[in-house]
Design a protein around this nucleic acid. Sequence first.
DNA 1: CACGCTCATGACAATCACGTGACAAACCAC
DNA 2: GTGGTTTGTCACGTGATTGTCATGAGCGTG
Lengths: 227, 227
Amino acid sequence: MTAVLLIEDDDRIRLSLAMALEDEGYQVYAVASAEEGIAEQRRRPADTVLVDLMLPGMDGYECIRRLRRDDDVPIVVVSARDDTHDIVAGLEAGADDYVVKPVAVKELAARLRALRRRARTVATPVPVTSVLTFGDLEIRPEAGEVRLDGEPVAVTRTEFRLLCELADHPGLVLSRQQLLQRVWGYEFGDERVVDVHVGRLRQKIESDTGKPRHLVTVRGLGYKLQL
Amino acid sequence: MTAVLLIEDDDRIRLSLAMALEDEGYQVYAVASAEEGIAEQRRRPADTVLVDLMLPGMDGYECIRRLRRDDDVPIVVVSARDDTHDIVAGLEAGADDYVVKPVAVKELAARLRALRRRARTVATPVPVTSVLTFGDLEIRPEAGEVRLDGEPVAVTRTEFRLLCELADHPGLVLSRQQLLQRVWGYEFGDERVVDVHVGRLRQKIESDTGKPRHLVTVRGLGYKLQL
DNA sequence: CACGCTCATGACAATCACGTGACAAACCAC
DNA sequence: GTGGTTTGTCACGTGATTGTCATGAGCGTG
C-alpha cells in the first residue's frame, strides 16, 4: 500500500484529508508541523509527502528543502494560497506538484497516482551506513557527517575523529591519554589539547555548553559521550 | 535547450503561449491539432508536451493516450476546463500535470522544470542500463554518459571514472588515497591530482562551484557525491 | 572559607587544506 | 604530422584548522 505523509497544521483539514485519503486506499501518516514531518519521514519514510505552506514554526518552503536534502521522495504542496509567486516558490523549493485548497480528493488522488507513475527508483540514497545515535545527535562515520536534530553540523577533522572515538564507546569514560593516543597518535603530549577540542566540539553540538547533555566531563578521569 | 511541443487549436493562445515560453528559454514546436502533434512528436521528439483538451478531431485524452503509447515523454494538460472530472480524466489518460487556463507563464515554466527534474529520459530504449541518480544528476556507467537536468554533459574519461567511483558509494566519503587507487591505480602519488579533477568536474556539473550541491568536499577527509 | 587542582574558554600565530589558473607533456583523431 | 583535447604538475592565495598559552571559573577538601 502506498504510504503518504501529510503535514498540515489545521486540525480539521488534516483529519478530513487523512480520512479521505485513507478511503482512497492510502496509508496516511499525519503530523501538524514541519519539524514533526521531517522527523517522521526520517524514521518511517512515506512514498509521497503532502505539505501545507503556512505552518507554525518552520514554514513549508524550508520543510520542502530539508526533505529534499535527505531524500528524493515526491512532494506535493497543498496550500490555500493560489498566487503565481507562491506556486513558483513552492515548485522551485523542490516540490513536484502544487494544488490549491480546497481540493477535490479525487483530483489529489489522481495527481498522486500520476506522480507515483513518474517517480523513479533512486539509487540507494545511503547504503549500509552505520549511524551512531545519541538522542538527537547522529554520527555517520562513513559519510563523514554529524547531524544534530537532523541538521548537518560542520565539524573539523580532529573534532570528527574525537567524536567518533568517544561514540565508539558509548557511556564509557575515555581518559585524555587514551584520546591523545587514539585521535592524535601522540604517545605523550599536552593533555590540554583534548580539553580545547572538546570545548570547540561542545560549541557545535551542545545547546548549553555549561550543562552538556551528550559530551560530558568526568572530573579527574576524562570525557564520555552519552545519550 | 529544452524543447516543448505545444498542441493547441486556438491560434491566439497558441501563439502567445509559444512566445511566452520562448521568452522563458524553451524551444517551442507549436501545432494546432492532436494528429499533427502526434506526428510531430514522432518526427522530432520534444522533451515535454503541452496539450489542450478540447481539440478539433481527435480530443486531448485520446491524444495523450497515443503519445503515451509511443513514449514516456512528460505531458502537461493546459485546459480551460477546471472541474475535477476533467482533471482526473486527463491525469488518468497519462498526463503528468494539469493546469487551468489562463495560466501564468511563470507557473507553467516552474511546473515544467519540476516535471523535468522528475522525468526519467527513456527516449532511447537502452536495455537494463543502471542509472545512478543524484537529484538532477544522472550517471549511466554502461552508456558512459552523464546528464544534468536531462542534458548530456561532456566529461573526459578520468572525470567519468572519478564520478562513477564516487557514485558507487552515494553519500559516503572517499579519501584522496582511495580515489587515487581506484581511479588512477596509483599506489602512491600526489593527492592534488584528485583535487584538480574534482575541480574540473565541478565546473561541468555544478552551477555554483563555490557551493557544490552534489560533489562536496569533506574537509580533511575527502570527497563525496550526494543527492 | 581558603587552597589546590581541574576544567572551560578566548585569543593568536603557525600551519594546513583546498580551489584554481597556468603550463607543458602526453594522447588522440584525422 | 598536425591541431585539438586531456592530463598531471606546480605555485599561489585564501580561509579554515590547530596547538599553545593565559586567564578565570568551578569544584572538592580540609
